[in-house]
């Protein structure tokens, strides 16, 4: 996986145990078009506290353009921003 760190638009659900479950996200590509990706499987979720800044890190897997791909999403608590961190 390579670091891309791109901001994305996200639909997710929050359960009653403070769990966060990403469902699908939209990313704008370099050519100006948008791409919607369904998060098919969340493999791991981890709380990261680097430099005291809390982020949830999700390792996920989806079918993208016919290929099974692994990627990493990050959710920053202080700003409520989602990023596609690695793919």
């Amino acid at each position: 996986m390579k670091i891309v760190a791109k901001p994305i638009e996200m639909i997710c659900w929050f359960d009653t145990n403070q769990g966060i479950h990403p469902i699908r996200f939209r990313i704008s590509l370099d050519d100006g078009s948008n791409k919607v990706i369904n998060v098919e499987k969340v493999i791991t979720r981890e709380l990261e506290k680097l430099a005291g800044n809390t982020m949830w890190v999700f390792d996920c897997q989806s079918n993208i353009d016919g290929f099974k791909k692994q990627y990493q999403l990050k959710y920053e608590l202080s700003t409520c921003k989602w990023i596609l961190f690695k793919i």
Partner: peptide, 13 residues
């Protein structure tokens, strides 16, 4: 180092 870690966390190479 705080600045460096924050930047790495946000995808700085």
């Amino acid at each position: 180092s705080w600045e460096a870690v924050y930047r790495l966390q946000h995808g700085s190479q």
